[in-house]
Design a protein around this nucleic acid. Structure first.
Lengths: 240, 240
DNA sequence: GTACGGGGGTTAACACCGTTCACCAAGCAG
DNA sequence: CTGCTTGGTGAACGGTGTTAACCCCCGTAC
């Protein structure tokens, strides 16, 4: 049913190539090098032609962010496939290590997608982006299969409960789409709070490493990360 | 002794104004608006004149980063003065809250100084920058006055010990300059490791809030921060 | 088969940008 | 006063995003 006239196919291909070239420029020469004219030059066309595909450079950058998220998610999904379905702790480790490895390999992309001030390029995180879904899916599997350490619901600051409850709904929806039906009791808001703390530490560790903002020169960043990860896993009860 | 000819005074003033104007542009219109021509326009001069003061735009941006660090440090130092010298836990809280409040008030500056990919503007952190010194000084005061929770030295991953030992030296030097002589025994490398973890969580929390990258919409970010801070304080033994 | 409309491309142009160069005027040293 | 340094100017080069006018060819309708 894919009604692809020659024209449509050509258009899709060009559209795709624009983003591919933009991506190359970003990874190899940094954010500043992502330029309509540079992209056009690389493609053998002229800059105004790109306006047939994107309303502006900023629009193109946003599309780029989504592509990046998609690729990151795909990469992590591949990593996950190598891991037994029922070994949920290993899946968590894989996702965390995969995220770090990706961020270190693609600092420009990481910076653009995960560390850009609001209003600059990257759109606000939906958690509907593919990357967020990977995280949520793995989290859901863990909750479904293991007893995690989490604070009692009444220990969670009351001002946060509403947001956390909403987060819970989002996660249930995401998991339902992924075909995973979770019994409600395994996911109290204390669990949502724990996931939040987990993300804060993972993100902080990765971002500081990518940006070189540790309080001293770290000559062995990988052991540091592994140490943090092990500690984190123990804290949330992943290692029994 | 200040041999200030008319010329020198004028030069200093211009130099200062350039950075002030650049700073205004950064805070009010974002990184992209910091432009030699825009600065010159605002000052009523022409763009090439700025080259008498800075070798390039990038050079100017780096100076800007240092100014930002200095101002941030000054702000936090002011906050600290309102707190009793011997109430070190309160000093830690003040610094953390001050850092968050500053970051939220100045997202562009935060992004530039604390979340820029290496090679882009911001110089690598020395911990000799004024901001780092504030943090270290407060940490030193805490170590001098309280018994912190920290892992035993032999629990610290061996690959990290050398870096942490180096960090320890840096901290001793910084404190000595600040007139604080610390007995060595209060600062094992386990303490350095704890400080590192502390910074990871504080940074992660603040950066995620500034960049809006929490996994869900947080309608009450302040309680979330306070909750994290309280937890952190308890973990490191600040709250006995 | 042919007319036509629209989509993908072009060129030219405008307003910015960083940076360099030649030049100039004023301040200071001798 | 002379001359050198210093801080400024204007013009220019190559780069940028973006718009406007134009053009041609593909796909469709008749």
């Amino acid at each position: 049913m894919t009604e692809t006239t020659r024209r449509e196919r050509s258009r899709d291909e060009t559209h795709h190539e624009i983003r591919r070239v933009a991506r190359d420029l970003l990874t190899n020469q940094g954010r500043e090098a992502v330029t309509l004219r540079a992209i056009a030059r690389e493609m053998g066309i002229t800059a105004p032609a790109i306006y047939r595909y994107h309303a502006s450079l900023e629009d193109l950058i946003q599309q780029l962010c989504m592509d990046i998220c998609t690729d990151l998610a795909a990469e992590m999904a591949t990593d996950l496939q190598a891991i037994p379905e029922d070994d949920t702790p290993a899946q968590v480790f894989a996702v965390c290590r995969g995220f770090r490895a990706w961020a270190l390999r693609h600092p420009q992309e990481f910076s653009l997608v995960f560390a850009s001030p609001p209003g600059t390029g990257a759109p606000t995180h939906d958690l509907n982006d593919p990357f967020g879904r990977i995280f949520l899916t793995v989290a859901g599997r863990v909750l479904a299969t293991r007893q995690l350490a989490m604070p009692a619901d009444d220990k969670v600051p009351p001002e946060l409960r509403e947001d956390l409850a909403q987060f819970r709904v989002t996660l249930f929806d995401t998991l339902a789409e992924a075909g995973l039906d979770l019994p409600e009791h395994v996911f109290p808001i204390g669990a949502a709070y724990t996931m939040l703390r987990f993300w804060v530490r993972l993100y902080g560790q990765v971002a500081l490493e990518v940006f070189g903002r540790f309080p001293f020169a770290v000559s062995a960043p990988e052991p540091l990360f592994e140490s943090m990860l092990a500690e984190l896993a123990e804290e949330v009860g992943l290692i029994s």
